[in-house]
Simulated scan of single mutants.
Amino acid sequence: MRVLIAPDKFAGTLTAVEAAEAIAAGWRRRSPDDELDLAPMADGGPGFVDVLHAALGGDLAAVTVSGPHGAPVPAVVLRVGETAYVESAQAAGLHLVDGDPETASSRGVGELLLAAVDGGARTVVVGLGGTGTNDGGAGVLAALGALSDGVLDGGPSALASVTTVDLGPARERLAGITLVAASDVDSPLTGLFGATKTFGPQKGIGEERIAEVDGWLEAFAVATDRRTSLEKGAGAAGGIGYALLVLGATREPGIDLVTSAVSLAERARRADLVVTGEGSFDFSSRAGKVPYGVAAVASEALRPCIALAGRVLVGSREMRALGIESAYSLVDMVGEERALGAPAEALADLAQRVARTWSR
């Protein structure tokens, strides 16, 4: 039997590569004769560059950029031909925010862009997701040379003083460069479904602060490009999507970009079963997340798709609406303590049990 293993990361415990290897290890214990094809996935968030490097090869260049509160942090630029891939979470990830989220800046993402351009790239693909910043991408614009009567790289709270923004220097700095925003989020920048309302609480912005922070982003949008702030994906990565869009970027769902890069459709057609997974499998998985994207590819190939997840928070009806035949919870099968304490071993054990049902 041929099994395609295509999981996302298990956030906080396993990278996509580690998750795929753990699933394969457990599966082999039960069904050593099955042919396993490992295709770690990403949707633009953490792990985006690692997954693409594994699939495409290329050269990794180590750089140092500004973290959300100004401290230097390490990051990498993946160069494949004239295309560079960078990951916003490496410069502005939630794990890097160690202070007030209202002062967290996305400046380091702009510095990553500059490193890619200075390295000779003609196309730069920016993976969006997993960030702890919520500054509308103002820090990105500042790093690229945008001018303002206020402070652009001081986090969302600094935007209260911004009334004018000159994007000319930033656009000139990227003249001739093709920008691609790889996003798993459809949100606009502001409003009821915008970056602050939807993702602010998970970044540490208190519920009582949502309206004021969203107001700062609204004023920032008025000072730059209000119409673009309403576009799908403008709210991705706390508004870094917006910064890229006003600089002329095109938007491509991160899962579609990775699916193409790893030739997932072709590999699914060669498989008898597709296995995907992520840390928490819930109905938000439909919004450009890896399991939904992998399940869609499996469906087109007329192959069944199952999911292994840290937690499964949807019922069978919702699961099938997402294109998943069955989903298996790590926490339910091995317990939360073991799932978090020894995630690779626990995931391997879960895969071994699942193989009993699905392997021939």
Rank of each mutant, 00 (worst) to 15 (best):
V258H: 06
S263Q: 07
S285H: 07
L4Y: 10
C305Y: 07
R28D: 03
G145T: 10
V180Y: 06
S88P: 05
P74G: 12
K289N: 12
P101C: 08
G130H: 06
A296V: 12
E252R: 14
W216Q: 15
D43I: 02
T83I: 00
D149E: 02
T178C: 02
G279Y: 14
V246N: 01
V140M: 14
R28C: 01
V314E: 10
A11L: 11
L273Y: 13
L174F: 05
D37Y: 10
A22S: 13
S88R: 08
G315E: 09
F48A: 00
A6Q: 11
F48T: 00
H95T: 13
A344I: 12
G288F: 01
G108R: 01
L36D: 14
Y328W: 12
V180D: 02
G67H: 07
G70W: 03
E337K: 12
V162E: 11
R226Q: 15
R303L: 10
V165N: 08
V294G: 09
G277S: 08
G215A: 05
L230P: 08
E207I: 03
V246E: 01
K197N: 15
A61V: 14
A39N: 04
V162N: 10
A342L: 07
R311H: 12
V334M: 13
A24E: 13
E82K: 05
K203W: 10
A327Q: 04
Q352P: 15
A19I: 12
V17Y: 04
G239T: 11
V109R: 01
L96V: 02
T64P: 01
